[in-house]
Computed example of a mutant assay.
Amino acid sequence: MSEYILLKRLCKVHAPSGNESAMKDFLLTYVEENKNRWKVAPQIIHGEEFQDCLILTFGNPRTAIFAHMDSIGYTVRYEDQLVPIGGPHAETGTKLVGSDSLGPIECELHLTDDKQVKYKFGRAIDTGTDLTYKCNFRETKEYITTCYLDNRLGIYSALKVAETLTDGIIVFSCWEEHGGGSMPYLLKYIYENWKIKNTLISDITWVTDGVHPGNGVVISLRDRNIPRRAYINKIIGLAQESTIPFQLEVEANGSSDGREIQTSPYPIDWCFIGAPEDNVHSPDETVNKKDIKNMIELYSYLMEKL
């Protein structure tokens, strides 16, 4: 049996931005079923004041991991029109799934000649219905290909780190793919309760001309935002000390939950660390298994040392 059964289950959960409740419920069930097998059973924090977000606290935390639960997708507008959630890569024939008042939906995306995004289905779909890619999880000796490795792989890595974590916080956030919004109250809570100043963003980045699959987890020096260099240098020093394979990334575009940390009123540092993927925001996102392994190992090491 594949060791990635949990990742496959995560990728099948319907949780586009703004509709993350199914992922929260999945995570609550998973944590309750597995926490007593972990090195430290976490305190589980959720409720109306956290909307659909979830916080796990372990021991005496010094560092927090943030992993966003939401995915890209589409919202049904009027007639057969679709409005993007986040930045999905649209191709005619892509299978989309969801449900409305009349039941389950499996339809096809259609890109018109004038670049309008529409759906093809045997009936009208209720206005406001959100649709996501149909999951087709494929695994080879070296790679995993599926929709929503961004950011179900970030969640998966955090849950694997949780198995041996003694001191730390894991935060599962919402809305990241469509502009954010949950981070301000999450940051307020962890700073006011634990004075957390170190954070790591467990998310997925891109394969580029300078970042290659199979060469290790990526530590981002910057994207559209620039984190504090003294903190990044500390992360790089610990990564070198660990001997776990890693790559460095410099990008001008892209963003993450780190943006909201940087613009918050709290003196909290952040660093984006994640596996690189091909075919970004498509049904065929692809990540090398070595990079997944390195991601989990580096997070575990940093949570112990920071």
Score class of each variant (00 low, 15 high):
D291Y: 02
H110T: 04
N215D: 12
N198D: 09
K141Y: 09
K118N: 03
L131E: 00
S21F: 10
P267S: 09
L131M: 10
G103N: 10
S220F: 07
F272H: 07
K197A: 12
W206Y: 12
T146D: 03
V97T: 06
I44M: 14
E32M: 14
E3C: 09
L159P: 03
K141V: 15
E249H: 05
V211Y: 03
G180N: 06
G180W: 02
A230G: 00
F137A: 07
A124M: 10
R222N: 13
L109G: 00
P227K: 11
S182D: 04
G237A: 14
I72L: 11
D167F: 14
N225V: 13
D209S: 08
L82T: 03
E139G: 05
G214F: 11
K115N: 08
S202A: 15
P276R: 04
R62K: 15
K197P: 07
D278K: 11
S220G: 06
P104D: 08
K195Y: 14
H178C: 13
Q51A: 15
R138Q: 09
R77T: 05
S99C: 07
A67F: 12
T145Y: 01
A41Y: 11
V40Q: 10
R37M: 15
S300P: 01
I244Y: 12
N193S: 07
N279H: 13
N151E: 10
I125M: 04
E285T: 13
I296E: 07
T146Y: 01
G59L: 12
K195D: 12
N193D: 06
N279P: 05
A124N: 11
V287R: 01
E108L: 14
A64S: 02
I244C: 09
V31M: 14
S282Q: 00
K115F: 07
S256Q: 05
L102G: 01
E251N: 10
G18R: 11
K134P: 00
Y299A: 08
G180L: 03
T129G: 15
E106F: 04
Q262F: 13
P245W: 11
K8H: 01
R123Q: 08
G93Y: 00
E142L: 14
T75P: 04
L96C: 07
T92F: 01
D100M: 08
R62Y: 11
D223N: 14
H212F: 14
L221F: 12
N36L: 15
L221K: 14
P213G: 06
G210K: 15
T92C: 02
K120S: 05
T263W: 14
L111N: 01
N233I: 05
E3K: 13
G87Y: 09
V171G: 04
S282V: 06
E20S: 15
M295C: 08
Y156M: 12
E91K: 00
R9T: 04
P16C: 13
Q240N: 12
V13I: 15
K120H: 04
I44S: 05
I196S: 10
I105Y: 03
Y231F: 14
I65Q: 09
P267T: 09
E251Y: 04
Y4G: 03
T145R: 02
V76Y: 08
E32R: 15
F50M: 09
M23Y: 11
G98D: 01
Y156K: 10
G122N: 12
A15R: 10
H110D: 00
Y266S: 03
